[in-house]
């Protein structure tokens, strides 16, 4: 093959793969503007604005929000808002905890030798090489056995019983997020010049001041991108949440999954579109942080 034909092949393949990656997303977004409530075929955009929603059969003829009818509908959906609230609460708490303990573990693994080190390393490595469902059902079993034993021990009944909920989801999220935080922070620590810390110590700073004024500011970009990665992983998680949630702790992925088994209105597409938009912004922020981190710092 001559080089020209080879690069043509690469170019065609590239265009095809990008089309494959984006066609479903574009379709998803387009259908969020569908005037058809049944959402089976695309019946065109909702043509006009009006004081109230005008329906003709299953077609929306006009709406206070015009073509953005389903987005307004979404904003009024209490279930979605509750699920969004749960998702954010879980992600927020789990990110804070996993970032703190993950950074500590990264420091320990990178800087110290200690007895339980191989065990710590192993436990951070396992989640990467086993399917998520294995961890999910393991945690489910642990909680259900523990709750059964505990409720029986204290003779709890009805609402007083311990059961799955936001707490179990958050605790479980932390478990699968920590390995990623540790990995990212460790990578940052590897390229770390110890001379800065030695200089600080020579100038009379103790360990704590050295950490606070020298080490921490230098690993901060790594810690932040670890935290952001953990946050997105938590927002995105389906499998672990699926097995550890309970009444009142539905997250957005679980909510959408539930909808897929019922009638799907363009509202699901509107929800997906908003979500993709948020992902877009988060990835942009992540890339910006990484490009900052890549630059040498003095």
């Amino acid at each position: 093959m001559n080089p020209h034909r080879r690069s043509l092949f690469i170019l065609v393949a590239t265009v095809l793969v990008y089309t494959f990656l984006y066609a479903p997303i574009v379709g998803l977004i387009l259908y969020s503007f569908n005037s058809s409530r049944t959402n089976v075929t695309f019946e065109g955009f909702i043509p006009s604005f009006s004081g109230r929603v005008v329906m003709e059969g299953s077609l929306v003829k006009s709406s206070p929000c015009g073509p953005f009818h389903w987005y307004c509908d979404l904003a009024k959906n209490a279930d979605v808002l509750e699920a969004a609230g749960n998702t954010l609460t879980i992600a927020f708490i789990a990110t804070i905890v996993s970032t703190i303990i993950g950074t500590m573990a990264a420091l320990a693994l990178q800087r110290y030798e200690f007895k339980i080190k191989p065990f710590t390393q192993l436990s951070l490595y396992i989640p990467i090489v086993i399917p998520e469902i294995v961890m999910g059902i393991g945690i489910l079993t642990l909680f259900s056995q523990f709750f059964g034993w505990f409720n029986g021990l204290l003779g709890l009944t009805g609402d007083a019983r311990l059961s799955m909920g936001i707490v179990t989801v958050t605790i479980s999220h932390i478990a699968f997020m920590v390995p990623f935080v540790t990995l990212v922070v460790q990578a940052r620590l590897q390229g770390f010049d110890k001379a800065y810390e030695e200089a600080a110590m020579d100038l009379g700073a103790n360990e704590w001041i050295t950490f606070r004024r020298v080490t921490f500011p230098m690993i901060l970009p790594g810690v932040l991108s670890g935290a952001l990665l953990a946050f997105t992983l938590s927002l995105d998680d389906f499998v672990i949440t699926f097995f550890t949630n309970g009444p009142g702790s539905t997250t957005l992925p679980i909510y959408v999954y539930g909808l897929l088994r019922r009638i799907i209105t363009p509202q699901v597409n509107a929800l997906s579109t908003v979500w993709i938009l948020i992902v877009f912004l988060v990835v942009l922020l992540l890339q910006w942080l990484q490009s900052r981190e890549a630059k040498p710092q003095h």
Binding site: A108, Y112, F119, L142, I174, V178
Partner: peptide
């Protein structure tokens, strides 16, 4: 080192 790694190690052990 043990102290720094302990929270993560305990968490991963239990979960």
């Amino acid at each position: 080192g043990t102290l720094l790694a302990l929270p993560t190690t305990i968490w991963m052990f239990i979960l």
